[in-house]
Write a protein that binds this DNA or RNA. Structure first.
Length: 1010
RNA sequence: GCUCGAGUGGCGGAAUUGGUAGACGCGUUGGAUUCAAAAUCCAAUGUUGCAAGACGUGCGGGUUCGAUUCCCGCCUCGAGUACCA
């Protein structure tokens, strides 16, 4: 073979690696270990696009590099195969999600194999496999069997808690538990029935069942965690989310808030990602203070970060949902309060978020008592106070908080000033530095720090408050009303949840005839006929037997997507598919934690936070030897695709006029103005985004417009105009043919007019066709997704240019962490490079393989060692794009040096093998080696080949480089100066002047200041 | 609003602790080869100017012999977050 036939070469080596299990990691090795992990994919029906492999290629290069460096590398891959899309597909088609998942996995595997990754497939995991989810269920049971001891700051077993309760009650137990947990003594405990005991224990368990207000997504028919909601709508599908009370499993992640925060410091993770976790945990330091409600026994606890401003309190505000509202509202305010609560409840979360400027609230008629002055403070309710944060109530200090200030101004509540020499006539003062408190009794003339310290002491002494740290982090809801997820190993006896022990796991997902909720609103598992637990025979039996005394109903919810992905990195460590452990002690102790993890930043507050939580928990219970799962993490950027749009414009301004004219009484003139403005806004937006179209004249479908515009949503509602994000494939657009659309694109590119087209903005054309139909054609660079029809498939690239080209090109696109548009224009450059590389080894007659044993030239050695140094530095610094150019430079130089000596070409093949493993293996075998190149030691850099005797000095005048001069490197400063000053060009540039100063940095630069 | 990140040729992007701005690749132009095309190879390519030169890393200042790099003040774009008391 003389020509570079990448197809044959790549197929040959991919087969070789599979047959020889080249990349199988060893759990018993003398070599140091290194664990390189990719975030495993969800196998979607769309298959892989060129964006997916970006991170995998980077991690593969690193894994291969580490093997060359003498490490025993674990580089596994698997599938996060439980999830919503498979289920939704199942609902539509009736196919079992297991089947479509399996099909998708097969396709993913084919695509992955074509790219030449060095994965150890023998360790593959699939979260939806019963052998795998058995252990997800088991971890759930471990959490169920644990409580959090705040004194020891770790999780302990529930059995130990039972022992404590029966010997001393819960008086001294300092645990993370439900807020409504009441105190009892040891003798009380003995008196409790078993059910009562279980009820109490449930308040302590790390995974617990509780009536909680959850984010309910009616369209999806399930609850969502906070991190699954983006901009008030569901992350998947973009459906509205409402608050609803439901009995749900929750994870007591809040017990770990501080440790999750502290642990971040030691992690080698991107700072923005750490910042977002810090922000998500949201620690704030302050104090809790209790305000007594006058003429009652009620107390309102509040959290404040500024207890030093307590003498500035002039009113209280409760969240409308606050449980005390009902109890304290006076009779004459009842009606108004009720009305307000109803209106706020009706407003969706999204509206409430969008509309932060409107100040609203109602006085309850009740008053609280200032804990120090005894002053009466009116108690209001207002929706700027959130039920979900702190205690759902605030002490309002209008002089020190802008929201309190605005509220007070709006409702004419007094604004007492407690800041010395600060003017608050225009706005609140929230500064802390160099201010002193006044009008505050014993806090007068103190600084912020002094006052804070003193007031906390006073609060504690009086028994009305204490220093407190508050977290924004909420416990994570763990129940999903879905089919395609892990079943809970839980059944209900007398209403109390009971664990099914590990010997009886996995608890297999039952068969159902439909994947929808039941008619009575129960989750899909409610449709299963065989879904009850026989306590006596320890097995799943038919629901019909539930009447029997030993058969009980099983949990109908399933676990969320993040359950399986929170521990999968441990399962890979096991080299055998063991049924008796989630991962053996030996494997866990050997591999410990992930050394390098590559994946997208979208998992910052979901997967990466939950994983850390579970690992800390498993560590507490002695089940894993590490506190943190991932040492170093890199977020690869997204590869963006160019999406196209070409829509007919159905609704123009005249049609809107028509709508308005038909129902003139429906709209005021202001509203008409608003509507016209809105349509103009939409029109200007479709220039840069996709276009609106309508199926019926009253429906406008706008893509991405929602995010970009501020509109009055009620107007849209009134007009029954719907705004829904939709992408349409340009192929299906009703222009006469594809060629026409293609030509339109060309004219955008060249900025040439096309027939009756008018440019709108940078990327759009408006075309009026003969029959007066209007179309908008445009382009947009956005995230690749099937629904946007902008997906580029890696298979196409592999077929046309080969996997090595794909790998190098993806790296060459730019820095790994950066998002960049996919553009195939440059791919020929990388492909050409590989051809040149091949030629370098085939410079003999008829382009036959030609490598000699001749001694390498000095220049070639210099090129080689320069390359070794740079490539090594680049890989260690994850700067893969620059090492591709380094290879290009090396091959260009060696080609012009006509280098053909083994001394150079052998190490070069090793250098390049992490990037282009197929061609490297082929060259390696042609060089006469029988074994794979994959574990050959990385070439050693030798400084001596780079040592130069001369330096081309840049000579600059006043900092501007004018010419260069070659001088020996061993010259002293004085010698350099005299050589430079004697140069004719120096004399020319000086024009007879004497330089004021000559700066000489030996080996670097000469600068003459004149 | 707040928190991060980024602004460098026609394009993707290089540039060690401040030391020759624009590596490498794409594109473009010219040339060689070819009946022709593809492929390949050679040369040029920041702007301006015939040239010498001048100007150039978002804008305005500053520090320095010297600033894409450091400091101060702005502008623009992107990402995350959002009534967090």
């Amino acid at each position: 073979m003389s020509k570079y036939h990448f197809n044959e070469i790549e197929a040959k080596w991919q087969k070789y690696w599979a047959d020889n299990k080249t990349f199988k990691a060893d759990n018993n090795s003398e070599k140091p270990k290194y664990y390189v992990l990719d975030m495993f994919p969800y196998p979607s029906g769309a298959g892989l696009h060129v964006g997916h492999p970006l991170g995998y290629i980077a991690s593969d290069i690193y894994a291969r590099y580490k093997r060359h460096k003498g490490f025993n590398v674990l580089h596994p891959m698997g599938y996060d195969s439980f999830g919503l899309p498979a289920e939704q597909y199942a609902i539509q088609t009736g196919q079992h999600p297991a089947k479509t998942t399996e099909e998708n996995i097969i396709r993913y595997r084919e695509q992955l194999d074509k790219i030449g990754f060095s994965f150890d497939w023998s360790r593959e995991v699939r979260t939806s496999n019963p052998e795998y989810y058995k252990w997800t269920q088991w971890i759930f049971l471990q959490l169920f069997d644990s409580w959090y001891d705040i004194d020891l700051d770790k999780a302990r077993s529930i059995e130990e808690l039972r022992v404590v309760f029966s010997s001393e009650g819960n008086q001294k137990v300092n645990a993370a538990c439900d807020e409504d947990t009441e105190k009892f003594t040891a003798s009380d405990w003995k008196e409790f029935s078993e059910i009562q005991k279980q009820e109490i224990l449930l308040k302590y368990r790390l995974t617990y069942l509780a009536e909680t207000e959850v984010n309910w997504c009616p369209e999806l028919g399930t609850v969502l965690a906070n991190d699954e909601i983006v901009n008030g709508v569901s992350e998947r599908g973009g459906f509205p989310v409402v608050r609803k009370k439901m009995k749900q499993w929750s994870m007591r992640i809040t017990a770990y808030a501080q440790r999750l925060l502290d642990g971040l410091e030691k992690l080698d993770w991107p700072q923005p990602l750490k910042d977002s976790q810090t922000n998500w945990i949201g620690r704030s330091k302050g104090a809790s203070v209790e305000f007594k409600v006058q003429n009652s026994d009620f107390r309102i606890p509040v959290f404040t970060t500024r207890p030093d401003t307590i003498f500035g309190v002039s009113f209280m505000v409760l969240a409308p949902e606050h449980q005390l509202v009902e109890k304290i509202t006076t009779a004459d305010q009842k009606e108004e309060v009720q009305k307000y609560i109803e209106t706020t409840a009706k407003r969706s979360e999204r509206e409430r978020m969008a509309d932060v400027k409107t100040i609203s609230g109602v006085f309850t008629g009740a008053y609280a008592e200032h804990p120090f002055t005894g002053e009466s403070l009116p108690i209001w309710i207002g929706d700027y106070v959130l039920a979900g944060y702190g205690t759902g109530a605030v002490m309002s200090v209008p002089c020190g908080d802008q929201r309190d200030y605005d509220f007070a101004k709006h409702f004419n509540i007094p604004i007492p000033n407690i800041f010395r020499d600060v003017d608050i006539s225009e706005e609140a003062y929230s500064g802390k530095e160099n201010t002193f408190i006044t009008n505050s009794e014993f806090l007068n003339d103190l600084s912020y720090e002094q006052a804070t310290e003193k007031i906390i002491a006073a609060l504690e002494e009086k028994g009305v408050g204490e220093g407190k740290i508050n977290y924004r982090l909420r416990d994570a809801v763990f129940s999903r009303q879905r089919y395609w997820g892990e079943p809970f190993p839980i059944y209900y006896k007398d209403g109390m949840p009971q664990a099914i022990s590990v010997e009886h796991l996995p608890l297999h997902l039952p068969e159902v005839e439909k994947y929808l909720p039941t008619e009575t609103g129960e989750p899909p598992l409610g449709r299963a006929d065989v879904w009850a637990w026989d306590e006596k025979n320890l097995k799943v039996v038919s629901n019909k037997l539930i009447d029997h005394k030993t058969v009980f109903p099983l949990e109908l919810n399933t676990m969320p997507g993040w359950a399986g992905s929170s521990w999968y990195f441990f399962r890979y460590m096991e080299d055998a598919n063991r049924d008796e452990v989630f991962a053996s002690k030996e494997a866990l102790n050997y591999w410990k934690s992930v050394d390098l993890y590559i994946g997208g930043s979208e998992h910052a507050t979901g997967h990466l936070l939950y994983s850390r939580f579970w690992v800390k928990f498993l560590n507490d219970r002695g089940l894993v030897p590490v506190e943190e799962p991932i040492k170093k993490l890199i977020n690869q950027g997204m590869i963006l695709g160019e999406s196209a749009f070409a829509y007919r414009v159905y609704l123009d301004n005249s049609q809107v006029e028509e709508i308005l004219e038909k129902n003139p009484e429906d709209y005021s003139s202001d509203e008409k103005e608003d509507l016209r403005a809105l349509l103009d806004q939409i029109k200007s937006l479709y220039i840069s985004h996709s276009i609106y179209k309508s199926e019926s004249p009253k429906t406008i479908v706008v893509n991405h417009v929602k995010e970009k515009m501020s509109f009055k949503s009620d107007i849209l509602d009134r007009l029954k105009l719907k705004i829904v994000p939709v992408h349409v494939d340009v192929k299906y657009v009703n222009l006469s043919n594809e060629l026409e659309v293609f030509k339109l694109y060309q004219s955008i590119e060249s900025k040439k007019e096309f027939e009756n087209a008018v440019f709108i903005g940078e990327n759009g054309l408006e075309i009026t066709r003969d029959n007066n139909e209007k179309y908008i054609v445009g382009r947009e660079v956005e995230k690749m997704s099937k629904s946007k029809y902008n997906v580029v498939n890696p298979d196409e690239i592999c077929e046309k240019y080969g996997a090595d080209t794909l790998r190098m090109y993806e790296m060459f696109l730019g820095p790994l962490e950066q998002s960049k548009p996919w553009n195939t224009a440059g791919i020929t450059g990388v492909n050409g490079f590989l051809k040149k590389l091949w030629k370098l080894y085939h410079s003999g007659k008829n382009e036959a393989f030609f490598v000699t044993e001749n001694e390498a030239s000095k220049d070639s050695l210099k090129t080689l060692h320069k390359t070794i140094k740079k490539v090594e530095e680049d890989i260690e610094g994850f700067s893969f794009n620059t090492s591709v150019s380094t290879f290009m430079i090396a091959v260009n130089e060696l080609t012009s040096q006509k280098c053909n000596s083994r001394e150079i070409l052998e190490p070069l093949a090793i250098l390049i093998s992490p990037y282009a493993p197929h061609i490297a293996e082929e060259l390696w075998s042609k060089l006469g080696h029988a074994d794979s190149i994959s574990t050959v030691p990385f070439p050693k850099f030798e400084e001596k080949h780079l040592v130069e005797s001369n330096k081309e000095y840049p000579i600059s005048f006043n900092g501007k480089m004018r010419f260069t001069m070659e001088l020996p490197l061993d010259l002293s400063k004085d010698e350099i100066e005299s050589a430079v000053m004697a140069h004719e060009k120096t004399i020319q540039y000086l024009e007879g002047r004497t330089p004021k100063k000559v700066i000489i940095v030996p080996g670097k630069i000469v600068n003459i200041v004149g």
